[in-house]
């Protein structure tokens, strides 16, 4: 019997086969999923901001792309996974409200997704699937059995990547 473990906002979790991970209603936040297909150690982080560096109140590591990815890797490796085998799938980073004149604070979703891509590249973790952007929310489910990521939206259907 597999269970599905919930990841909250500014939260991260690691599970092993046969369990799965989910985070509900991603908007401008980004869901980062890491998977080692050999050990089937599976991780997910729900980050809110691109970087912990510009922010003084940064003790919650799961809130920021940089510190969340580092922490996720560490926990997964402590469960026997190997970073060299990791693949990543990412989703979210939407812009929920659109205006004709844009400023940076409105594009936080895009900046979150860009930061996640840059950090993963630096760590040599290949991104196998990327479903970011748009102006809609996403619920995601990530399965340790297959490394498949299920994406549900309100009115835009369900897909698997």
């Amino acid at each position: 019997m597999s269970t599905i473990v919930k990841v909250g906002m500014a939260d991260l979790k690691v599970v092993e086969y046969p369990d799965a991970l989910t985070t509900l209603g991603l908007g401008s936040c980004v869901g980062i999923c890491l998977y080692d297909s050999t050990t089937r150690v599976t991780g997910m982080a729900h980050i809110m901001l691109p970087s912990s560096k510009a922010i003084r109140k940064n003790e919650n590591v799961a809130k920021f792309a940089d510190t969340a990815i580092t922490e996720l890797i560490q926990i997964m490796e402590s469960k026997g996974a190997k970073k060299t085998r990791f693949i990543a799938k990412i989703a979210g980073g939407a812009q929920m409200f659109a205006f004709s004149s844009q400023n940076d604070s409105m594009k936080i979703g895009e900046r979150n997704a860009e930061a996640v891509r840059a950090i993963l590249k630096e760590l040599n973790i290949p991104i196998k699937a990327d479903d970011t952007g748009g102006n809609f929310g996403r619920t995601i489910e990530f399965y340790s059995e297959s490394g498949k990521l299920l994406i549900k939206t309100a009115g835009k259907g369900i897909k698997e990547i």
């Binding site: 209603g25 991603l26 401008s28 936040c29 102006n135 929310g137």
Partner: peptide, 14 residues
């Protein structure tokens, strides 16, 4: 926007 509460509320939360 009409969408999931989590997604809409990510705007003030962030």
């Amino acid at each position: 926007a009409i969408d999931m509460a989590g997604a809409i509320l990510s705007v003030p939360a962030i």
